[in-house]
Write a protein that binds this DNA or RNA. Sequence first.
DNA 1: CCATTTTCTGGAATTACTCAAGGGATGGAA
DNA 2: TTCCATCCCTTGAGTAATTCCAGAAAATGG
Lengths: 138, 138
Amino acid sequence: MLRGVALRVTRPRVAVLSAVHDHPHADTDSIIGVVREDLGEVSHQAVYDVLRALTVAGLVRRIQPTGSVARYESRVGDNHHHVVCRSCGAIADVDCAVGTTPCLTASDDHGFTIDEAEVAYWGRCPECVAATSAASGG
Amino acid sequence: MLRGVALRVTRPRVAVLSAVHDHPHADTDSIIGVVREDLGEVSHQAVYDVLRALTVAGLVRRIQPTGSVARYESRVGDNHHHVVCRSCGAIADVDCAVGTTPCLTASDDHGFTIDEAEVAYWGRCPECVAATSAASGG
DNA sequence: CCATTTTCTGGAATTACTCAAGGGATGGAA
DNA sequence: TTCCATCCCTTGAGTAATTCCAGAAAATGG
């Protein structure tokens, strides 16, 4: 898999790639933790570097909702979107809402050449909704 | 306007509010510069604090495209979106693409209670497209 | 004009991330 | 397998954006 994109196979890279696959939407710090459980001591710089290399190579995708640090996921190649919980920050995948390229046609693009539409749905996850309604009764 | 949201009227607040109105999509540092041209020396902390207060009060809206610092705009209340240039970071407003609440219906919301759909269109602004085609011929 | 409340100032601290140099591991060739 | 050139990882420092803290000034209400 790494060889497929002309990257050398090293333990940190394998561990980071596995971590992203096993923990979708994990932030850099979490990934560092997972990798260290796997390999022992690994520098944060290595993880940052590997994540960048994997992102450039297209093996992982970097997302960054407003107010959050960078997060990574292994679903690439499909233009899916995300729903983010305002309370706990949980993220879930959402497939394209309408057809294959939803919303890619802006009403007025101001002359921009648009190649991607990134959609972030904001709301509350089921757990937070349940917790709130249980506490406040409404 | 400030009184309308129960905020005290101070010179820094008026200056920040004006700056956001005059410079849509400006980042915090630019706003600090504009405010200081207006009032002389103002602490960055005051500007950060005012921007947060105005955001909470709903007088300005905070946006933060991936890879960019926080930016502020005065268009609030309408659910418009943004198109961002990958080359120079320029931002322009885009009205809702379809109807009044476009894309607000996710194909599978995973049980989330969604209240907002934030769309970021990524591409190249007219200037950058022109510069590239002039340089590379393609 | 005075007391209270809120805001502004100035500095330090935190977080996420980047830059730079050198030793070590990896992949290819013999 | 062995050797070498290349690329990667480690260490350490450094940057940028933002937040926290304590004291002083200003705005508000009477």
